[in-house]
Amino acid sequence: MDPDDDLTDSSGDAPTLLRLRPPTNPVDPRALRWWRLRALCSAGLVTAVLGVTTWLWEPGRPWLAVPLVAAALWTVARVTFEPRIRYAVHRWETTDQGIYGLSGWVVREWRAAPLSRVQTVDAVRGPLEQALGLATLRVTTASSSGAVNIVGLDKDLAAELAERLTVITEQIPGDAT
């Protein structure tokens, strides 16, 4: 079957196109702070280590200059741009049939999984997320790479969603493979 068949709908007057609409719900605004802190903890830490080494180890300076500048630029990008772009991009939605998330900043990803294939639903909270009162909703399927993660949710909302989705998935028979 030619995929082009579904692209244009000849039944109406004007030709129509398929469009993937973004999910309905934005993430919690506290996620901005979370992404910023996360960037500082990863890229910022690398920059700091490189900076201290450059400062203390004089013969290594010609070697460390380029990596240090690159790491510094990367940290600036991740602290200033990444949170804002992510907050504008990240969205999520759950229905009685499926879960749908949009995420990313350099690479965007739309991910959807049917609840009939879901194996586990968890609200996961890392140390930074705990400090900010946030949680990640992790929905795994039988595929090792098929998990849908929705980051930056309010912890109560995530717990409630996990509970609701677990109830729905338990009602669907089959071993979800």
Binding site: D6, P15, L17, L18, L20, A113
Partner: peptide
């Protein structure tokens, strides 16, 4: 179009038709 067909029914609620 390929994604919609690859997983039958999965993306239908999230896809809308717009005038070209």
């Amino acid at each position: 179009a390929f994604a919609v067909e690859a997983a039958p029914g999965l993306l239908d609620p999230f896809v809308e038709r717009v005038p070209a």
